[in-house]
C-alpha cells in the first residue's frame, strides 16, 4: 500500500539524475510511470526494470521535449501507454553549461532559444497535451522541477534563469486556471544536487578539479543535495498529505 497507489505518472528526463530518483520514489509509493529519456536508452531501461520489480508498470519513451512535435508525441504515447496520466513531472532540462554559461549580453539567440525550448516551451507543450485529460481524474498533479537559479539570478546563469523563471510562470498561472478541476500545480527548486549535470557545471566553473564531491564538506548540512531529496518533496506534493497545497514552491537547497 503506497500513498500513490493507482496514480499514473509521466516524468520527463526520467532516466538519470533527479528524474530517475523521482521515478523510483513515485513507483515505490505505488504509481505506474512513463519514463521519458532523450539519449541514454540503457539508463532508461535500467530504471524501468527497477520499477517493474516493484510490481509497477514502466514504459520508456524517447523524445526530445524541446521539440514541439516530439513533446506532443510523448504526451500522446504516454496517455496511450498507461490509459491516462494524472501526475506530470516536468523535469527534463539542460544546464547553462551546455551553452557555455554566457553572460546575458554575449549569449547567442540560438543558445537562449535552446534553453527556453527545453524548459519553458516543453513544459507548456506537455501541460497543453496532458492537463485536459487530467481533468477527468479524481486528482491531478503537475510538478515543475525548477532551480534556485530562478531566485539567485547569478552571473553567467541569466539565460538559464530566464528559462526557469518562465517555466515557473507557467506553473503559477496553471495552478490558478486548473484548481477548479482538482489539479495541483507546484514547483520544486533544487540547489546544487549530486548529478552529472551539476558536476559538469562545477567543473566548468573551476570550483572543483575532479569530482563534485569536493564541495560536500562546505555544503549545507555537510553534504551535497541528493536526487532523493528532490524526490521526497515531489512525492509529498503529489500525496494526500498535500491535498490543500497548490501554487507553491519548495526550494530544496539546504538554504
Amino acid at each position: 500500500m503506497g500513498e500513490l497507489d493507482g496514480r499514473k505518472a509521466l516524468v520527463t528526463g526520467g532516466s538519470r539524475g533527479i528524474g530517475r530518483a523521482i521515478v523510483r520514489r513515485l513507483a515505490s509509493e505505488g504509481a505506474d510511470v512513463v519514463i521519458n529519456y532523450h539519449s541514454n536508452q540503457k539508463a532508461a531501461e535500467e530504471i524501468a526494470s527497477e520499477v517493474r520489480k516493484l510490481g509497477k508498470k514502466a514504459e520508456i519513451i524517447m523524445a526530445d521535449v524541446s521539440d514541439q512535435s516530439e513533446a506532443e508525441r510523448l504526451a500522446t504515447e504516454s496517455i496511450t501507454a498507461l490509459g491516462s496520466i494524472d501526475i506530470l513531472v516536468n523535469n527534463a532540462g539542460i544546464g547553462a553549461t551546455a551553452v557555455g554559461r554566457p553572460h546575458v549580453a554575449t549569449a547567442s539567440p540560438d543558445d537562449f532559444y535552446r534553453l527556453m525550448a527545453a524548459h519553458a516551451f516543453a513544459s507548456h507543450d506537455l501541460c497543453r497535451m496532458i492537463v485536459p485529460q487530467m481533468r477527468e481524474s479524481t486528482r491531478g498533479d503537475v510538478v515543475m522541477i525548477s532551480s534556485i537559479a530562478a531566485q539567485s539570478f547569478g552571473p553567467t546563469g541569466g539565460t538559464y534563469a530566464a528559462a526557469k523563471a518562465a517555466m515557473e510562470a507557467v506553473a503559477y498561472s496553471l495552478a490558478k486556471e486548473e484548481r477548479g478541476n482538482n489539479i495541483h500545480v507546484n514547483i520544486v527548486a533544487p540547489g546544487l544536487i549530486e548529478t552529472d549535470m551539476a558536476e559538469m557545471m562545477v567543473k566548468f566553473q573551476g570550483r572543483v578539479k575532479d569530482s563534485i564531491n569536493e564541495l560536500a564538506a562546505d555544503s549545507p548540512f555537510g553534504r551535497l543535495g541528493y536526487p532523493e531529496d528532490i524526490a521526497g518533496s515531489v512525492a509529498f506534493l503529489c500525496s494526500e498529505r498535500a491535498s490543500y497545497i497548490t501554487n507553491q514552491r519548495i526550494t530544496v537547497a539546504g538554504s
Partner: peptide
Amino acid sequence: VFFCSEDAAYVTGQRLYVNGGSF
C-alpha cells in the same frame, strides 16, 4: 510533519503556504 521528516532533510529556510493556493 513533512518538514520534520527525512523527506525534507535538505529543506531549510523555506515557507510553505497551505491555503489551496494564494489566490
